[in-house]
Design a binder for these strands. Structure first.
Length: 121
DNA sequence: CGGGTTTGACCTGCGC
DNA sequence: GCGCAGGTCAAACCCG
């Protein structure tokens, strides 16, 4: 089921701790006076992971296209994009400012191609 | 050789 | 009108 991430759009309810920081989801540069019939194109799905490395391999190929520092965070944010031709899925990785071991991964869009690494024993 | 990664520059939108 | 912030792209370099 882990590989079936591209489906649910609901944010992860992994807020086990008390405060789970701010999670601003659902606010991009979308014009409100645009085609109403046009549904949300890219679903956003974010979840946190406790790992020392931010290179989370979900089975897809990612190509880094930028790195920018974020306010409130001493660590820079990494911008990744799916490699597959025709797959315009984006992924962002950000680290916590207080807990360096907490990595926040934000997926933008849904994959429309089979996974390459089906490393599921 | 190919793919992926890196860093700086560039562009756009918004605020003042 | 200009400055700032955030985001994206591109050229070069490195590794397998």
């Amino acid at each position: 089921m882990d590989k079936n991430i591209s489906s649910s759009s609901s944010s992860s309810s992994s807020s086990s701790s008390s405060s789970s920081s701010y999670f601003k989801l659902g606010d991009h540069h979308v014009k409100p006076s645009q085609k109403v019939g046009e549904q949300i194109k890219q679903r956003r799905f974010a979840f946190q992971t406790r790992s020392q490395v931010d290179i989370l391999d979900d089975g897809y190929r990612w190509r880094k296209y930028g790195e920018k520092s974020v306010k409130n965070n001493k660590f820079p944010r990494s911008y990744y994009r799916c490699s597959y031709r025709g797959c315009n899925v984006k992924k962002q990785i950000q680290r916590h400012s207080k807990d360096e071991e907490i990595v926040v991964t934000t997926y933008e869009g849904t994959h429309s191609h089979p996974v390459e690494k089906t490393s599921e024993s």
